[in-house]
């Protein structure tokens, strides 16, 4: 009895193999449309790239002006929080661009920063925060609701970073 059942399964498996082979003759399309990325994936990917660029900016400034570490480290830590929360929305393939936040391609906008003085460095990061806050809202309408809320929260956080950086700049 069990042998019969096994045989039936083997025969059935053979039938599946045959139909797959037939499908192969007509190309992959016969197997159905491959799954497409959900609408939030591209938006989250863009947001991750924005965070990665900001983190690269902070890294460059911290290397050039170590005296600012006390001011910058708490803000940088929050960007790492942003990045982690955004990445938790995606399954990122190892080795993909999004999995390397501080890649050399994440160059500052408008060329190399002018980091001659702490005040200049603070102004540079303030502008980068403002730009990031705007960029995180660019695709707000396209995002699923919970991702839209996360982007709005991150954008607001970056606006407050700009405020704090400006305050430090003026007190110098």
């Amino acid at each position: 009895m069990t042998r019969d059942a096994t045989r039936r399964r083997v025969l059935a498996a053979g039938a599946v193999t045959l139909s797959l082979a037939a499908a192969g003759c007509r190309g992959l399309a016969a197997l159905g449309t491959p799954p497409r990325a959900a609408p939030g994936v591209a938006v989250a990917g863009d947001a991750i790239a924005v965070e990665a660029r900001l983190i690269a900016h902070y890294g460059a400034v911290l290397a050039a002006v170590p005296a600012l570490a006390g001011t910058l480290r708490p803000l940088l830590a929050q960007h790492h929080d942003h990045l982690a929360r955004l990445r938790s929305r995606l399954i990122i393939a190892p080795g993909s661009r999004a999995s390397h936040p501080a890649s050399p391609s994440a160059s500052p906008p408008g060329g190399a920063p002018v980091l001659g003085s702490p005040a200049a460095a603070l102004r540079y990061l303030r502008d980068a925060e403002d730009a990031a806050a705007a960029a995180q809202l660019a695709h707000l309408a396209a995002a699923p609701p919970s991702l839209a809320q996360l982007l709005a929260s991150i954008s607001a956080s970056e606006a407050t970073h700009a405020l704090i950086l400006d305050g430090h700049r003026r007190h110098r």
Partner: peptide
């Protein structure tokens, strides 16, 4: 968030 940060003197990661 901006008003809260001004009162706090610090920021939140996820306002």
């Amino acid at each position: 968030a901006l008003r809260a940060a001004a009162w706090r003197g610090s920021t939140l990661a996820f306002p």
